[in-house]
Simulated scan of single mutants.
Amino acid sequence: MALGLPEAITTLADTRSPRRRAAAKRLRALADPAAGPALLDALRREIRDPRTWETQYQMIMALATCGHQPALPLLRELALKPLDATMIYVAIGDGIVRLGRDHPNDPAPLDWCLSTGNDMLADGALRAVAMLRLTLDEPAIDRILNFVEKRTPYGGLRFWPAAAAAGWNGSRVKAFLTSCASSPREDVADAAKASLEGRYKTYRPL
């Protein structure tokens, strides 16, 4: 039986990391703003132990889906720290975009993530752009494409822009998607082909 909101919040303080992680995943699914303060307190405790990076990842994602904007300063701080488990940067980038926008299609949080030069952080930020189906303006799109086109096509950094571009316009977008449609990576090619048809696909990331 799935945990309810009060039980999941209480379980964030469990002595076992798998239980705390399960609670965070449940709160991520519930996306209830009421869980935000408890999640932020739990994350502050959790980040002291680098071994529990999977739990930290889920707590960050839960904070993002709960819309808890007071978590933003901590996420920005963590984004600039060296982390052994680099997968956490993906959650941080995702969270910064979800929590840091002043309006729905605000590119500023994404630009901040790109400016760090951290590809994992950028990947998470771009994932949020795709999952939220943001319709960015042409200058913001150009900044994204400038960033990812400098990376190897054999890497995965083009996947989320290719997925997000279903709602974007312009000749450069079409050229990017056409190029991605023949990518050596099947996931990138499939996302690009859907976007060329103006069709968003459904994704369920970790």
Rank of each mutant, 00 (worst) to 15 (best):
A13T: 12
E46P: 00
K201N: 13
A175D: 15
F159C: 00
L75S: 05
L196S: 06
A165K: 01
G124W: 09
P33G: 05
L3D: 09
A108D: 14
P104S: 04
S171R: 08
G67Q: 04
S183H: 08
L78C: 04
L145M: 06
P153V: 14
A79F: 11
A31D: 11
K174F: 13
L75A: 06
R19E: 15
K81P: 02
M59D: 04
V129N: 02
F159G: 00
T10L: 10
G198A: 06
G67K: 02
A13H: 12
G167V: 07
C113F: 12
L30H: 11
A125V: 09
P82D: 11
W168C: 00
A122I: 08
W53T: 02
A191M: 06
A42Q: 02
R185F: 14
A165N: 03
D123F: 15
P18V: 10
L30D: 11
N169F: 13
N105R: 04
T86N: 03
M1R: 08
Q58D: 15
W53L: 00
D119C: 00
D119A: 08
D102I: 01
G67S: 05
A62G: 06
A42V: 06
D32T: 02
A163C: 02
A164V: 05
Y154H: 08
D32H: 07
D14V: 05
A181Y: 12
D142V: 03
A91N: 03
G117E: 08
L196F: 13
W168M: 00
P205V: 11
R98H: 09
L177K: 02
Y203Q: 02
R143T: 12
T116M: 01
D84P: 00
G93P: 04
R21G: 00
I88L: 11
F147H: 14
T10E: 15
A29D: 15
C180T: 04
T10H: 13
Y200K: 00
D14W: 09
A24N: 05
A29K: 11
R44D: 13
L132W: 12
M87D: 14
E186N: 06
L121G: 02
G95R: 01
G4Y: 10
T52D: 11
R76Q: 15
L80W: 12
A91F: 08
A85T: 03
L177F: 13
A64Y: 12
R76T: 11
L40Q: 10
Q56E: 14
T65F: 12
Q58C: 10
L78H: 07
K150Q: 14
D123I: 03
K193E: 15
D123M: 07
S115I: 04
F176M: 00
D190C: 01
T10R: 13
P18T: 10
G156F: 15
P18D: 11
L177A: 05
